[in-house]
């Protein structure tokens, strides 16, 4: 399942997309993110219910600003979450 966390407003689309089929719940994104955007939650989408990464409730509504420092207008972009995720489950829409 592809989970879209974020929002769309007048200035653009701001979504972090987590592919939960790829996510193995390793927690590396949680520790890698300098702004604590991620958390591990119980998978409440099915009856099996393992652990999966998600964007915290707190950051979902301000993700453009939470992720801002990792996305400079010029120079190299180093998205720590994307680099940390071995399963390549995390993508950003902007």
């Amino acid at each position: 399942m592809k989970a879209y966390y974020g929002y769309k407003d007048g200035s653009g689309d701001y979504f972090i997309i987590i592919d939960t089929d790829k996510c193995n719940g390793c927690r590396k994104c949680v520790d890698a993110c300098p702004h604590r955007v991620f958390e591990l939650i119980k998978d409440e989408f099915d009856i099996e219910g393992g652990l999966m990464a998600a964007v915290t409730e707190e950051h979902r509504k301000k993700i453009k600003y939470s992720c801002g420092p990792c996305k400079p207008m010029s120079g190299e972009r180093k998205l720590q979450c994307v680099l940390a995720c071995e399963a390549k489950a995390i993508t950003h829409s902007w």
């Binding site: 592809k2 929002y7 769309k8």
Partner: peptide
């Protein structure tokens, strides 16, 4: 009926 992708707008 299994979810493949979802998007929620709650702003």
């Amino acid at each position: 009926g299994k979810v493949m992708s979802f998007l929620m707008n709650d702003k």
